[in-house]
Write a protein that binds this DNA or RNA. Structure first.
Lengths: 104, 104
DNA sequence: ATACTAATATCGTATATACGATATTGGAGT
DNA sequence: ACTCCAATATCGTATATACGATATTAGTAT
């Protein structure tokens, strides 16, 4: 996960958040993102992100039935998610009203 | 502003949002982003964004005293912001609780 | 008018996120 | 065992956002 000042880390952030709620595979993530955004991210988008988060030690593969590989957060991933969430809130603190209005 | 499926449009989104609340110059935007994120985006980050939003017709230069150039949203920019806000809320609808908790 | 300075603008470079296309892999079913 | 398919993985390419360095510009002050 990036530490610098740019805005590019959001896909990793979303993936960490989704996995923190429920252990998920690449395909499940693609489905969930389709629900949220209307379009399904291509395999070339999601699998490199999972690879990078895995190599960074933020998520860990768990064996599941079938050929799916599910991932769960590691301790380090939980910590990273807390940090990223705080940053997100600092940047977007004033989106609270809109989120309430649009999404109830 | 981008229409596709990626996550990269957030700096433009934030800039549109800030300008929608108050006409702002590049320096004022840098200051506000510093407040929110802790680091001030470099000139090489913010001015190209303003240029691109201006060329896209989303913001418009207004003459101010001094050498500052302030920008205001155009009608097209207002519309774009509404669309982008809805998308943002669809993606991050479940951040509502965190935003409430962290930022009150 | 000239020098100074803050704001703006541009340049080269780096990287995360994106895509579509293609390759690989591992269970399922025959 | 072999084929098939869905899930995963990789490749080449494109673009927005990032930086630091440098250049330009327009008021300010001397």
């Amino acid at each position: 996960m990036r530490e610098s000042c740019d805005m590019r880390g959001f896909l990793s952030f979303i993936v960490l958040r989704l996995i923190s709620k429920k252990n998920m595979s690449g395909e499940e993530l693609r489905e969930e993102l389709k629900k949220r955004k209307g379009t399904k991210p291509s395999p070339g988008t999601i699998y490199p992100v999972l690879k990078s988060l895995n190599e960074g030690g933020f998520i860990k593969e768990i064996k599941d039935s079938g050929k799916e590989k599910k991932y769960k957060l590691t301790k380090s991933g939980q910590k990273e998610l807390r940090i990223a969430t705080r940053k997100f809130c600092e940047i977007f603190y004033d989106m609270k009203d809109e989120l309430g209005r649009h999404c109830d």
